[in-house]
Amino acid sequence: MRDNPFDEIETLLDRVSRQVEEGMAAGGLQVPGTVPVDVADTDEAYVVTADLPGYETDDIELTLSDGTLRLEANRLGDDIAAEGTYLRRERTKTSASRRIRLPEPVDEEAGAAGFENGVLTVRLPKVAGGEDSKRIDIE
């Protein structure tokens, strides 16, 4: 009896599928231009932690609207070339963004954010309402 020519393809697809699932479970799959985040659900608030190395506070914008936290960061490349010639240039203008849908309404007025050592932490206390857009200042 002749072998099924699709067996090898099915085996390959199964392996790729397993790798993707393992990567997602471990948090290892990162889409370029997105910000890696952790979202913790405490009894009284959601705490969002995001890695933004190389960014300054002024480079980051946070907004909260319709139960979605929007994080956008834009960094201009260093302009050192005026002092010399680049031998290698990998750190250029870059931007990253992330939208995080929150499962419950939060108190938009009580939201607070801090940025230290390239790590952004946003604390959003839970409430029973609120649908307007609110900008969150980073301290």
Rank of each mutant, 00 (worst) to 15 (best):
V106P: 00
G111A: 15
D59C: 04
E116M: 00
Y55R: 08
E44Y: 04
G27D: 13
A26L: 03
D78A: 13
R75N: 06
L120Y: 02
V16F: 14
G27K: 11
G27A: 12
L102Y: 01
T85H: 10
D66I: 02
G84F: 14
D14E: 13
D38V: 15
E108T: 03
A26C: 01
V20G: 02
A40P: 03
P32W: 02
A50K: 02
I100K: 07
P105Y: 07
G129E: 11
D51R: 13
D66Q: 10
Q30M: 13
R123I: 04
A45K: 04
T42I: 11
V119H: 02
D107H: 03
L64A: 04
T92M: 04
S17N: 12
R89G: 08
G118Q: 00
S97W: 08
S97H: 12
D59T: 07
E61Q: 15
Q19I: 14
G114N: 14
G28D: 07
P103I: 09
V119G: 01
D66Y: 00
S97K: 08
E90W: 07
N117T: 05
A26W: 12
G129R: 07
E116T: 05
G54E: 13
S95I: 00
G67L: 12
G114I: 10
L87V: 14
G23C: 09
R135W: 06
E10N: 10
V119W: 00
E83A: 12
E139D: 15
G54V: 13
D14M: 11
D7W: 06
P125G: 08
E10D: 05
I80R: 04
V106Q: 05
T121Y: 00
E56F: 01
I136C: 03
D132T: 05
P105M: 02
A81Y: 04
L71W: 06
G118A: 08
T42H: 12
A128G: 06
D38S: 15
P5F: 12
G111S: 15
S17F: 15
E44Q: 02
R91C: 06
A40G: 13
E139F: 02
D107F: 02
